[in-house]
Nucleic acid binder design. Structure first.
Lengths: 343, 343
DNA sequence: TTGTATGCGTTATCAG
DNA sequence: CTGATAACGCATACAA
């Protein structure tokens, strides 16, 4: 039976104070005398009082809700990343008294219509976008209309990157891959190849750059590096074929770092498990099969996103606080000899 | 600049009617004369008016929001199912003017505390639970307190299964697996094994029962069947080992149906791709590697869940409408010969 | 420090 | 069919 819920008035009556005092105890406890405060908190506990979210929102004009778009396909093997991010975000949002709600959209135009609906209905007061691209109409619209947002992922266009209005948090793929290469070398792998996406995706280019930097550090020159890397689209089959090519042009390979777990799986199959392979995203597949991978640390990303949301609007031009780069974790695994794959 | 949002009063003024008439046009258009209605809708369009969600909620005492718990680990290979379900649910909820919000919980007790918080704060008016078990304290609490909910997954205890207060929708794993076996046999596979979870999980037992039924149909007796099935915990390594055992005790196997894609992957590795393997859940991994799998049709599940939510409270004892069984889809794939795996 | 009065935007009630 | 009035629960400016 949904009994009538207690309100501030009920609490006030029970504690023998005014409504206002109750409100104060709840919102600015420091300004009320301790004895009174205790009486009120006791009454709150006894009655099981909870602030009515809608009433508060109506009054404060804040929804305390952030919206996240759920992708049509959480697809591909790496879809799980967004999932984990969402979980982390929800958890940390709760801790801050925020609610996470979901929406879907078929394309950017549709998504902007959703923004409209959600802000006009005062359902939401901030957005978290899971990815952006140069000239993204969504971020332009949000900035133009003054609605707070954070993106998980850098805006890869030149001008937006330092736009103090564009708050973003991203994972430093370059640093992660470089670290993975170093770890491989430290554990004896002399020649480390890279299986990446075709040039042009900011994320993919960064990851390859990390590999190149680590090799350069170790004295491998550009000419040699060129033989140690190949491209593949994001599919196991394409990765497998590409890895075969790589083995052909660099026969004495010890390990391969890949731009994703999907590519890594392809490489693993192509090499029959003879080489050490490191993927990216640390998906359940990497864990299940037991190959190494680079973890995005979505928990840190979520925390940073919420912190940035706090700063939105308060940022000055060039303020470095408007973005944040998280260093990922390299998870090394040694696949059990039990598991052999050959292609 | 977040301009001041137009309110019903603004619309009323623009249309030259009273606030109430505007409200009527919005909520019960049929009771207002056409000419007036048109004037009002025109004003609404022109001002870009949207009802203020919180105000409406405060007044109507309905949040039009359903809460879904996000699992700590979306984990394992099959975590993607919940993800797809969530997307489908969000999409269909939007179409019904509902919002989906997320919460997290560490255990059942914690989750009940979350229920409390969400309903007391009037943040939510219904819950979708992604799974239940016999004597689940969460469903008991929700029923006892009269809060609407639907579970994705049957309550496997005897008494709850037909409880008209317990609304559930589930996927008919038995039918799906039986169909997969039939399809395999139709395409020439004579002996079809089953790699399942240890007995005791309702879901797993159903899937095995489907396999057994299809074999029985085809004249394979119980004694023979006993040699054609083995158990494994939900891990690739365990599945691989179990599949090896299965190959040992039934050497002339043509195909294996598994209770999950994780198990299927293990079987695929163990058999070196020589046998046809069918998994369950049609996860990205199955798609990436190219083996057959049974799809839960989460879209139908989501639709059914929302329909059931409409009925909650209106159901009589024994009302069959309080639950719904969705028949899954068997997705047959023929792995390219390019992909070989051996264990 | 505490109490009083008022309004956030909406819908329900009821009189015209 | 339309319009005035009140109330949902909370928070704030202001007065005591």
């Amino acid at each position: 039976m949904p009994r009538r819920l207690p309100t501030v008035s009920d609490v006030a009556r029970a504690a023998g104070v005014s409504r206002q005092t109750v409100s104060n105890v709840l919102n600015s406890p420091e300004i009320v005398r301790e004895a009174t405060r205790d009486r009120v908190t006791a009454a709150v506990a006894e009655l099981g009082y909870r602030p009515h979210a809608s009433a508060r929102r109506l009054r404060t004009r804040r929804a305390s809700t952030i919206a996240v778009r759920l992708d049509p396909f959480a697809g591909g093997i790496s879809g799980a990343v967004l999932d984990r991010f969402l979980h982390a975000l929800t958890e940390r949002a709760e801790a801050r008294g925020l609610t996470v709600m979901l929406y879907t959209a078929t394309d950017a135009g549709d998504e902007i219509r959703q923004f409209q609906r959600l802000v006009d209905g005062a359902v939401v007061d901030a957005f978290v976008l899971a990815s952006t691209y140069s000239g993204d109409p969504r971020t332009e619209w949000l900035i133009e209309h003054g609605h707070p947002f954070v993106t998980f992922g850098r805006p890869w266009g030149i001008p937006e990157l330092d736009d103090p209005q564009h708050f973003w948090v991203d994972v430093d793929g370059r640093a992660g891959v470089a670290e993975a290469v170093r770890r491989l070398r430290a554990s004896g792998a002399r020649r480390v190849g890279f299986l990446g996406w075709p040039a042009g995706s900011g994320t993919g280019d960064e990851r390859r750059a990390g590999w190149a930097a680590a090799l350069a550090e170790a004295g491998v020159d550009a000419g040699e590096r060129a033989l140690l890397t190949v491209d593949a689209e994001e599919s196991v089959a394409a990765a497998r074929a590409a890895a075969k090519r790589l083995l052909g042009q660099a026969s004495d390979l010890d390990a391969i770092v890949a731009a994703s777990d999907t590519l890594a799986l392809g490489a693993l199959i192509a090499t029959g498990g003879a080489l050490r392979v490191v993927g990216f995203d640390n998906t359940p597949v990497a864990e299940a099969i037991g190959f190494s991978s680079i973890d995005q640390r979505v928990d840190e990303v979520a925390a940073a996103a919420l912190e940035l949301l706090d700063l939105v609007g308060r940022s000055e031009a060039g303020d470095p606080r408007s973005h944040r780069l998280i260093t990922p974790d390299v998870i090394m695994r040694t696949p059990g000899p039990a598991l052999g794959l050959v292609g």
